[in-house]
Amino acid sequence: MAEAIVFYGLAALILGFAVLVISTRNTVHSALYLVVNFLLVAMLYVMLGAEFLAAIQVLVYAGGIVVLYLFVVMLVNLKRPPETHQDPRRQTRLGLALASALLAELAAIIVYSATGESAPAATAAAAAGADIAGGNVEQIGMLLYTNYLIPFEVASMLLLVAMIGAIVLAKREL
């Protein structure tokens, strides 16, 4: 019961800050709201028994990614007024299409989780997390470096591509 209250409180806060992120006119403030949002999501991970993921969320997302966002904001000329597209209804149509796609997806998830027997997966994972209580780094490591060895090595390739891409984009003159 207490966990349900904490979950719904957290979920409401996460949604509230997400709305603030996209509704604030000041882009720097928007990035700062995103930090709060990431921290709250980390708390959600803690509730699910995923302590390692929560620590990573704080380290990488709240610490690193937001710094990257802030530098991108500083790259953009904020003093220039936003340009209007030639077709003023373009964004409305695109937004409507994307929003209906998202709505359909959410409806599918709700129907699936209400009727199907997929719900035990989450509770089983939470129970497994509750069993060890000290942390699940060992479990993650054991899975990552044995069963999911190929995705792990592919991840390094992905990081390599990101690094080279950033250098090519930023240092074209060299």
Binding site: V60, L68, F71, M74, L75, N77, L159, A166, A170
Partner: peptide
């Protein structure tokens, strides 16, 4: 507008962070 070097340093930081 700030230099793109800041972005490059931040990007490299995030990659080695991960």
């Amino acid at each position: 507008r700030y230099s793109i070097r800041y972005y490059l340093v931040a990007m490299l930081f995030v990659i080695f962070d991960v």
